[in-house]
Design a protein around this nucleic acid. Structure first.
Lengths: 211, 211
DNA sequence: GTCTATAGACTGATAGAC
DNA sequence: GTCTATCAGTCTATAGAC
C-alpha cells in the first residue's frame, strides 16, 4: 500500500494526515458511524480544517472510497488481460496479491462490500471498472480452454468466484474465526498465510490442472 | 425464516410491525445509518411508540442482532454434533441451509459480518455460541477421519471455512457480481442456485470423498 | 396503546480572528 | 493555514394529552 510509508513519516502534510485518519475510521466503522469530529481528533486537527481541505464529509468519503475500490479492483483488471502469464501463474498472483493487500488493510474488503451494498450502481460506476471486463478477458479464455481440456463441469465465472471467495471470506470473517477457534491475532494471520499455498492447489484440483 | 410468515399477515401486533421494519432497515443500512424516524415510518407508527415498546434504538438493535446471529449460527451448532448423518450429508446440509436462508434474507450475512467487525467481543458473546463448539464437534471428527483416510493435505478448519466461503461470499458480493457480469436479479439468483449443487462436489473433491 | 409536541444532545459546516 | 466559537439542522428520547 502506498499510504503505509506515509503513515510512518513524521512530516506528513495536514491533508495527508486527515486522509489517513479518515481512511482508518471509514474502513473500521463505515460512513454512517464515523463522525467528522472523530476524524479531526484522530488527525490531531479540528473540524474546520477538515472542511477547509475537503469541503464536506461526503466528499472526503468519496475520495477514500474511490481509492479503496481501485485497491480492490485495478489489480484484477490489469492481470486479467496479461498475455505473458499462464493460468496457474494468474491464480497464484490473485491469491498472493489479495492476501498481501489484506494483511496491511484487513478492513478494506468488508468496507467496500458494505458500502457497495448501500448504493451499488453509483459506487460501481465510480470505480471506473468497465462492465464485462472479466467476461471478455484473456484470463477467462485461459480458464475456458482448461475446462474443455479436462472436461470438468464448471464455468469460468464459478472458478473466478471460487478463488475470490476462498481468499476474501476468511479475512472478512476474521473476528468470528478468532472467537470460535480461540485464536489470537498472530494465529489468524498464520492461518490466512497458510491458505496462500493451499487455495491455488484447491483451484487447480477443481480444474484438473494438477501435474 | 419464522418471520416471513408474519410479514404476510395483516394482523401483526404493533410490536411485530416495529421489529420487522427495524430488521429490514438494520440489515440494509446497518446501525449507524438507520434512524428511528425511518423505522417508525416503515412500520407506519411514530417514534414515541418505538420507545414505548423497545425503550431505545440500541435495545431494539440488540434484539434484532441477537436473532440475526442465531439465524446464522444455531443451525451449524446443532448440525455439528448430529451423529446420525455422514460427512457428505452434513456438507450438503450446510450449503443447502445457508442458500435457503440467504434467499429469503440476502442482507443477513453482510449485516452480521459488518456489525461484528464494529465490536467483535461483545457481539460474539451475545450470540451465546460457546467457544470451540466446532473444534470439539463430531463433524470435525468426521472430517478428520476422511483426511486420514485419503491422506490429503488439509485440516478440518480449512474444510469448514471453504464450505462457508464458497457459499457466503457470492451472496455478500451479489451487487458486484451483477454489475461485472451484467446480470439481473433473476440471473444472480439462478447463479447462486447452481452453486448449491456444485459446492458439495468441490468440497468432496478436496477431500477425495468421490465415489 | 397511541398520538403530538418538544426537550436535549449531537452533528456537519461556516464565520471570523489570527 | 489554523484556530475558536457557534449556527442550523437532525437525532433520540420523553412529557403529557387522549
Amino acid at each position: 500500500m502506498s499510504h503505509n510509508f506515509q503513515s510512518m513519516q513524521k512530516d506528513q502534510t495536514t491533508e495527508e494526515k486527515i486522509k489517513l485518519a479518515a481512511k482508518k475510521l471509514f474502513h473500521e466503522k463505515g460512513y454512517g458511524q464515523t463522525k467528522t469530529r472523530d476524524i479531526a481528533e484522530a488527525a490531531d486537527i479540528n473540524t474546520a480544517l477538515l472542511n477547509y481541505y475537503f469541503r464536506s464529509k461526503e466528499n472526503l468519503f468519496n475520495i477514500i472510497m474511490l481509492e479503496s475500490l481501485q485497491d480492490m479492483f485495478f489489480f484484477i483488471r490489469d492481470l486479467a488481460n496479461e498475455k505473458n502469464s499462464n493460468l496457474e501463474a494468474k491464480i497464484e498472483a490473485i491469491v498472493n496479491r489479495y492476501i498481501e493487500i489484506f494483511r496491511e488493510e484487513p478492513n478494506l474488503p468488508l468496507f467496500v462490500l458494505s458500502e457497495i451494498q448501500a448504493d451499488p450502481e453509483r459506487l460501481m460506476q465510480k470505480s471506473k471498472i468497465p462492465k464485462n471486463i472479466l467476461t471478455d478477458s484473456y484470463f477467462f479464455k485461459q480458464i475456458d480452454e482448461q475446462i474443455k481440456k479436462s472436461g470438468v463441469n464448471i464455468t469460468p465465472i464459478h472458478v473466478f468466484l471460487n478463488i475470490i471467495s476462498l481468499t476474501i471470506l476468511p479475512v472478512v470473517a476474521r473476528p468470528i474465526i478468532s472467537y470460535m477457534y480461540d485464536m489470537n491475532t498472530t494465529d489468524t494471520k498464520y492461518f490466512i498465510e497458510e491458505r496462500r499455498q493451499l487455495i491455488p492447489l484447491w483451484i487447480k484440483t477443481m480444474l484438473k490442472l494438477d501435474k
